[in-house]
Design a protein around this nucleic acid. Sequence first.
DNA 1: GTCTATATGGGGATAGAC
DNA 2: GTCTATCCCCATATAGAC
Lengths: 219, 219
Amino acid sequence: MVKKIQSPTQNKTATRLLNVAEVLFSEHGYAVTTVRDIAAKAKVNQALINYHFQNKRGLFNAVFERRATIILQERIDLLNAAREKSKKKPIPLRDLIFAFVYPPLRMASEDKGGRSFVKLQARLHNEPKDIEHELRVKLYDNVSLKFVEELKRTLPKLSQTTICWRLIFVMGLYLYVASNTGRLEVISKGRASGADLTRALPEILDFCEQGFLAPATQP
Amino acid sequence: MVKKIQSPTQNKTATRLLNVAEVLFSEHGYAVTTVRDIAAKAKVNQALINYHFQNKRGLFNAVFERRATIILQERIDLLNAAREKSKKKPIPLRDLIFAFVYPPLRMASEDKGGRSFVKLQARLHNEPKDIEHELRVKLYDNVSLKFVEELKRTLPKLSQTTICWRLIFVMGLYLYVASNTGRLEVISKGRASGADLTRALPEILDFCEQGFLAPATQP
DNA sequence: GTCTATATGGGGATAGAC
DNA sequence: GTCTATCCCCATATAGAC
């Protein structure tokens, strides 16, 4: 957690640390990134990391929460807007998928920090278990459950189990795209770019919408 | 690379190290895993890691190659078998997807080592860049390109760009499933299990086949 | 091939002056 | 709030005896 802000000066230093840490953690992961590197790149004395965030772990959590809450709130907002628009009827499938994948993709296309953060989010499950578990339960799980409920209304013929599998597929797929691993460039021999998120969005929606509509071969 | 095997004794020790390292690297990643831990868990003297594999990096590469070559060869074999069966006609889409996702999923369901390895494969792009790049270029890229070629024959109406995007989606999706993050259990409230790979396979095939068949909204 | 002992370096965190 | 100096631990890797 970030300490309560007590002065503009503290705030500025803490923000610079957050910005730099975001990039480094995303690029190299929690373990490989050192507080020395973060402090150096932020041109801040190393001891200030402990002063502001208690320890390395506290800094990581602060980095994560700052961005994750934005994505999650936006998902909820889009979901509510879609529900409003469709009155009592189920929300159209494409709108649901959009509400889920757009916020992180938008963030990833906005600035360097956003691009970094979404990579960080994608690799969260590779970080030490305790870190991962705490953040996931605290931040993500209940929003995901809301989407399951809406998908059940929209796709009443599918079993809840199949719906959950398919939502997992959407997660895996958008996280991989957002991580921008460079694979797309290789297999397309440079014809497509993973960083091109205005292209990625319709491709994802086309694929996932049809995927979700597939008749289930399992109960 | 593994050193040339010179005696049965060396072989046994090296194999135990590979087995243990596979699990630990998969569970915790390259950076967090220490050679001390590996040696301790394998009940082998720490210095023997350097004797057999030169250094930590050498051990990692050996772990990776041992399994990756199996998966890649199996993909090629399934692809060739499917091409044979369909004579001069394009290979059915579902067979292509199967040939791509089945080998890793099968390995993941076989034993603890296989399960671990596929997680390791999924997180490869989170490891230090040089490690990742070397292994990916050496092992994966040309097989992926073969699949792009076959998909072009099977789906002649789709642009190569769209085909590449969709193959990336399949990669992201199966890698996420194989990593078994525990998310599926949470969102399904225990109704589905990510470890249940006989269930995962048809779910993946249903979703991906329809996804690939979606009409493209982009050129 | 296998061991012990150790060289060497880097990490996170804190004490205490300013 | 910010700095310097330092503590203490743990990592990889190797030298050299057996």
